[in-house]
Amino acid sequence: MNKVLQTFDEAVKDVPDGAVIMIGNFAGPGGTPFYLIQALRRQGARNLTIIANTAGGIGLTLDYDDHRVLFENKQVRKVIASFPFSTSASRPSAAEKQILSGEVELEILPQGTLAERIRAGGAGIAAFYTPTGVSTVIEKGKEVRVFDGRPCLLERALKADYAFVRAFKADSMGNLVYRGTQRQFNPIMATAARTTIAEVDEIVEAGELPPESVVTPGLFVQRIVEVKEDPGFPRNLKRSFQVRRG
């Protein structure tokens, strides 16, 4: 068994057109699998469905090349997200323009529903009921059922062909540990995809991670790639990245 690959290009080379891909991502660069995203842009698979918290390029804090590059490169057909639009009206993202023109389909969800649908996908739960979204635009087309006097929506599980996750360290078994708020969607996405690819700061030997500290058990991870120092690491981020690494 060998899960360790040497390059990001090799790790994404079999992604076919039409694949469903989950990408770990939140408000900033922490916990985003930057190198896997760049490799997928080079690889060029099209008609993708992206499941992620944002549609990239939200402009909240630091400007960097997240999965917005997949929209800019016209590789995306559909996006499922909770925070799909740029926070800046004057700097709309590529996704925003493509969604408004009808080129890309958007399914917008409350963030907790997005997270729970992914968790359900990984846990073999077909669907669940939740009150969040009742009497809002989220209700459209969904079954409503009352539990304990409270109306709830039926929400179905989400699964993917691939999950791109970012973690701090992996061991050779694929066990993952995370650093700080890097964790966000990554551990649940790792459970919900047929092929999970982890981008990590460092790969260590089996036995070097304390078993009690493992967050993502290795069975959820099929491929691991270590980030080698890259002078081009996220544009405009070099300073904070150096700060982080002391």
């Binding site: 909770s82 408004l100 409350p110 963030q111 529903t113 009742v134």
Partner: peptide
């Protein structure tokens, strides 16, 4: 967003409901 015809739900809906 006022006047933009688009919006972000994020975690606000879950917080408001729960």
């Amino acid at each position: 967003f006022p006047g933009r015809g688009v919006g972000n739900i994020g975690g606000g809906m879950d917080l408001a409901f729960n």
